[in-house]
């Protein structure tokens, strides 16, 4: 009868244990961040695999999301004769929400899982252990450059996503459905506030970048060194990143836009 309770308790303890280990690991990363400054080449190399290789999927997704927004926004707005407001509707939903959130979700799937798999494989094949024995700290040499690269990449990718999507909305709204080009841009500028909307969106993507980068490198470093362990930890990276991003988005939205 107490079986389920015990299992719940064990699960809870496991969660807290992992959280604790995750935070200790984060502390080690933060204490070793200096290496990103002293050896920028390591970060540049990771920026390639984390950022550049995510560029295509982010840009294409951005284009489609923007076009869908333009289309759906138009259908709704035209009922109220307010289709000039299309620009502000598209831009506000992008810079406040969709840009940071969708980019973070795609990024977790594309780059986060790859980071976890790569680090996990290095652990499984004893490459990390081997580095330690060569007196090279794997946290500095392997983890920190990847963490920093992911942290930098996400805000840049989110900005690219939003910019491309705004143009996607323009193609559909102005090019296809005949909204006036002037009002598309001027309504946008009149209603999107730089500090309140754009900056808050950037802050969101910085937070998401931090969290996704953290989860990805932690899961990789914490992998159980078997093939099953690796597949579990890559899955966990995607699932946990997605949940963390959505939950944090809710909290941040409340903090940033809750006062109106």
């Amino acid at each position: 009868m107490l079986g389920p309770l015990q299992r719940l308790g064990r699960w809870g303890l496991g969660v807290f244990e992992r959280l604790g280990r995750g935070h200790l690991f984060l502390l080690r990363i933060l204490l070793s961040l200096g290496v990103a400054v002293t050896r920028p080449r390591l970060v540049i190399k990771e920026l390639y695999s984390v950022g550049v290789l995510s560029l295509l999927i982010i840009a294409v997704s951005g284009l489609f999301v923007g076009m869908v927004l333009g289309y759906q926004g138009y259908i709704t707005l035209v009922k109220f004769g307010a289709e000039e407001a299309l620009g502000s509707v598209v831009a506000l939903s992008l810079v406040r929400e969709l840009g940071p959130v969708v980019t973070a979700l795609l990024f977790a799937g594309r780059a986060g899982s790859a980071l976890t798999a790569e680090i996990g494989l290095m652990k499984t094949t004893e490459q990390l252990s081997g580095m330690e024995m060569m007196a090279v700290d794997p946290v500095k040499r392997v983890i920190v450059p990847r963490f920093v690269a992911a942290f930098i990449s996400l805000p840049l990718l989110a900005a690219i996503f939003s910019a491309v999507a705004v143009m996607g909305g323009y193609f559909i709204g102005v090019g296809l459905l005949g909204v006036d080009a002037g009002s598309y841009w001027s309504q946008m500028q009149a209603n999107v506030d730089f500090y309140k909307d754009v900056m808050n969106g950037i802050i969101k993507s910085l937070v998401f970048g931090f969290v996704v980068a953290w989860i990805a490198v932690f899961e990789g470093h914490d992998t159980v060194p078997t093939s099953e362990g690796m597949s579990r930890s890559t899955t966990r990276t995607v699932v946990h990143s997605a949940l963390a991003v959505l939950a944090l988005d809710f909290i941040l939205t409340g903090l940033m836009f809750g006062d109106i």
Binding site: V95, A159, Q189
Partner: peptide, 15 residues
């Protein structure tokens, strides 16, 4: 490209 995106969001999209 990322910085250009940020620039566009600042100059073209916002006020």
């Amino acid at each position: 490209l990322g910085l250009a995106g940020l620039f566009m969001l600042a100059m073209q999209v916002s006020n």
